[in-house]
Simulated scan of single mutants.
Amino acid sequence: MDFREHTDRVLSVAESGSAAARSRLAASWRRSLVRHGIDPATGRAPQRLTQRELRPLLEANESFIRSAESRIDNLFDLVGQSGCAVLLTDAQGIVLQHRCGDGDADTFQNWGLWAGNNWSEEAEGTNGIGTCLAERRRVTIHRDDHFIARNIGLSCMDAPIFGPQGQLLGALDVSSARSDQTEGFNQLIAAMVEQTARQIEADCFRATFPKARIVMAGEGDTRANSLLAVDQDDLVIGATRQARLTLDLPSEGILRPLPAVDVLGRDDDSQKGFEGAERAAVMRALSRADGNVTQAAKALGIGRATMYRRMKRLGISEKSH
């Protein structure tokens, strides 16, 4: 599809309110045209911040970047050989970090897939990063799904990253400019992007609550992403985005400390509910400490006397482990 044909198609769909009601892609195209006033035929270069403008954003997102760097590197190790770039953005769509092969650097820099570039929907219309952030969901924008005609050579797979207080931190993106990039291959990459984004969330969460006990609260596929931070008084002081959705907690903001038993509930089955999770944590600690209660208490971040009280309440004797 050439630029003129793409532009005509985008304008036809974007100007149709009924199309926007039926399709998420059409709704994004309509936002790009009506709300953001973007011309799909624009020839202007992507917006890019100067180093002076970018520096304070990097400083403000330092802990986020630090938590994400190793995960980004791992993801790039998986997709970089296929000519893909990996990008991390802030919540406004500004690229904070990028990874690409040396041989592909000029290509991605020319596309604007580089630290400092603005890929918000307001700036670039429908695109992987901007639409992911606007809709707060995983998206794949493949070639002529893009709003601006000059971007139709790109395939972009994105997932949002939410912070320890449920807030939107940014987006994780894998982009390719290969003409032979297939939608099937995009689906495989999109799954890796989603998994890595959730890993970054978990890393950020654990770094925010280093002294808390981290408890998995969900079930099934969401369990690994449904994390609670529980303090020494058995109060829930933090919850990931998925845990908030699962447990009907406020979607965003600092949580008012809540008794863990109120959040998770008790269950007569000792393998379920908070008591089951707590018992399992205590049993694991005792096992790893080879039965040494003092060492197990230290590993759990509690005192020896508190450990004995919990063991008594949970029906764990020193010999039962």
Rank of each mutant, 00 (worst) to 15 (best):
D2L: 12
H6K: 12
T7F: 00
T7L: 00
D8R: 14
V10H: 02
V10W: 01
L11T: 03
A14H: 04
E15M: 07
A19E: 15
A20L: 01
A21N: 04
A26E: 09
A27D: 14
S28H: 05
S28I: 01
L33Q: 04
H36Q: 01
G37I: 09
G37N: 11
P40C: 06
T42H: 04
R44P: 00
A45K: 11
A45R: 13
R48P: 02
R52W: 00
E59W: 06
E59D: 15
A60L: 03
F64G: 03
A68E: 04
I72S: 05
L75D: 06
D77S: 11
L78G: 00
C84I: 00
A85F: 00
A85W: 01
G93K: 11
I94F: 14
L96S: 07
Q97M: 12
A105M: 14
D106Y: 07
F108A: 10
F108D: 07
N110D: 13
G112C: 08
A115S: 15
A115M: 08
S120H: 08
E122S: 13
G125W: 04
G125S: 11
T126W: 07
G128D: 07
I129Q: 07
T131Y: 06
L133V: 07
A134F: 12
E135M: 09
R136M: 12
R137M: 12
R137I: 05
I141W: 02
R143A: 14
R143Y: 05
D144S: 13
D145G: 03
F147R: 02
I148N: 07
A149T: 10
A149S: 15
A149I: 05
G153T: 05
L154D: 08
Q165H: 13
Q165D: 15
Q165R: 14
L169F: 11
L169P: 00
A171W: 08
A171Q: 07
A171L: 09
A177Q: 02
R178P: 00
Q181C: 14
E183H: 06
E183A: 08
F185V: 08
F185L: 04
Q187I: 04
I189N: 08
E194Y: 07
A197D: 01
A197N: 06
I200D: 02
A202L: 12
D203N: 08
C204L: 14
F205E: 08
R206P: 00
A207P: 01
T208L: 05
F209Y: 15
F209H: 14
M216S: 12
D221W: 04
L227T: 05
D231P: 13
D233V: 00
D234F: 10
V236T: 10
T240W: 02
R241P: 00
Q242S: 15
R244W: 04
T246S: 11
L247Q: 06
D248M: 02
D248N: 14
P250I: 06
S251K: 07
E252H: 10
R256W: 05
P257Q: 06
P259H: 08
D267P: 01
D268N: 12
D269H: 12
S270Q: 13
K272M: 12
G273P: 04
F274Q: 02
A277H: 11
E278F: 06
R279Y: 06
M283G: 02
M283R: 14
R284M: 09
G291P: 05
A297E: 03
K298W: 03
G301S: 08
R304W: 10
A305T: 13
T306A: 14
R313A: 15
G315R: 09
S317T: 15
